Simulated assay, not measured.
Amino acid sequence: MQIGQVADRTGLSLRTIRFYEENGLVIPPARSEGGFRLYSDDEVARLETIKRMKPLGFSLEEMQQALTLLADLESGTGDRAQLIDRLQMFHAAAIARVAALREHLAVAEGFAETLVRHLDAGRGEDVAGGPTRRTRPTEGR
Rank of each mutant, 00 (worst) to 15 (best):
V44Q: 02
E61W: 00
A100C: 04
Q5W: 00
R86W: 00
T49L: 07
R136K: 15
E113D: 15
L60M: 12
I84M: 09
S13P: 10
A128K: 08
T135F: 03
T77D: 09
S13H: 11
L12F: 12
V26E: 00
V98C: 08
G35F: 01
E125S: 04
A66V: 11
L60I: 15
K54Q: 08
A106I: 07
G76M: 10
G11L: 06
G34T: 14
R123C: 10
G76Y: 07
R141Y: 04
T114Q: 10
D8E: 14
A112W: 02
E109N: 12
L14R: 15
I84V: 13
A45Y: 04
E109R: 15
I3T: 05
D8C: 05
R52S: 14
G78N: 00
R133K: 12
R123W: 04
T135A: 09
A128E: 15
P29D: 15
S59T: 14
L60F: 12
L60V: 09
Q65G: 01
R141N: 08
V127Q: 11
Q88V: 12
E43Q: 14
I27T: 12
L47Q: 05
R102Y: 05
G110V: 05
T135I: 08
R117F: 00
T10W: 11
R141L: 05
A92E: 13
D41I: 13
L101Y: 07
P137Y: 07
E48Y: 02
I95F: 01
